[in-house]
Design a protein around this nucleic acid. Structure first.
Lengths: 157, 157
DNA sequence: ATAATTCAGTTCAATATTTAATTATGCACC
DNA sequence: GGTGCATAATTAAATATTGAACTGAATTAT
């Protein structure tokens, strides 16, 4: 029991384990605040993410959306249904391949995004103000490296 | 429209926005792999987190668990119910304050954790191997700073 | 002392998310 | 040109998560 507690203390110092814990906490802290901001506008983060993707990348096959937002196929149908009901996007059937459906942002969706984006940006500036501009750049580099490596693992595994 | 696309390109370069995007992606990539590893043992990440907390911090009032794992009160009841049903933890009524219920890890729970932890650790080493030990330490420092600041904001806001 | 307030935990409904099964279509190969 | 395999989207069931209302208990104020 004492031996185990000692083992535990040792492994808690392990940088890999610590990194995972700190990454999870930082993400939750930041993401919860961002989510609260987005929710003020009647959207959740997933819906916002899809809208943003369509806004800047143009219409996308539903499956591509799933790849980019990391969402299962069933979830895409669900979120696209909701956004379509709210008239922020439209489904467009592909003429060449009838299996494919595109999602396309509507004028109303564009207007919403353009309306809420400035404040959204301001909030993110505020939420991430714990780091200086240089520290942010450092963190971006490290997180990118970490994420890319993990993605590679997922593919090969 | 062109003007907006230019604006968009500009703001995408903003370190705060970029940091948020990269943080979200890195977290998802890493956390998904870790979750898959944990799920092999019949637990989800939340259950695992609660078990781990009880293992190393001893019995805890349910509310404390919610604070540490960042879980709503209703969710605590839910996850504690599940773990109790699986006999990995027990509920213990507080004698001094009858509003309070402690959760305490059982022998069976301890055995499980001790059984799966070594492999869990190995997996996290593997998943985070995109960064060197020094880079991990740098990332830990930055993420801690970011998370602490965001937590402060949440309190005052 | 009692009334009002606060607090811990539970319950319940609403919402998100995943996985597996299903449907419809396209493609390759014989 | 039909058969079988792959792919895109939908559906449905199971699971997670939250937030609000509620219950019982403790604390504070009057």
């Amino acid at each position: 029991m004492d031996k185990q507690r000692k083992q535990y203390q040792e492994r808690k110092q392990d940088p890999s384990l610590k990194l995972f814990v700190v990454l999870s906490k930082a993400y939750r802290s930041v993401a919860d605040l961002v989510a609260a901001d987005i929710r003020k506008n009647g959207l959740n983060t997933t819906e916002f993410g899809v809208l943003e993707l369509l806004y800047h990348s143009g219409e996308q096959p539903l499956q591509k959306i799933g790849d980019k937002i990391l969402l299962a196929s069933g979830s895409i149908t669900y979120v696209v249904d909701k956004l379509e009901k709210k008239e922020f996007i439209n489904r467009i059937q592909c003429a060449k391949d009838r299996r494919i459906t595109y999602a396309s942002i509507s004028e109303k969706g564009k207007a919403l995004l353009e309306d809420i984006f400035p404040e959204h940006w301001r909030q993110i500036e505020k939420i991430t103000a714990g780091l200086s501009a240089d520290e942010k750049k450092g963190a971006i580099k490290l997180l990118k490296q970490l994420g890319i490596y993990a993605d590679e693992l997922k593919k090969t595994d």
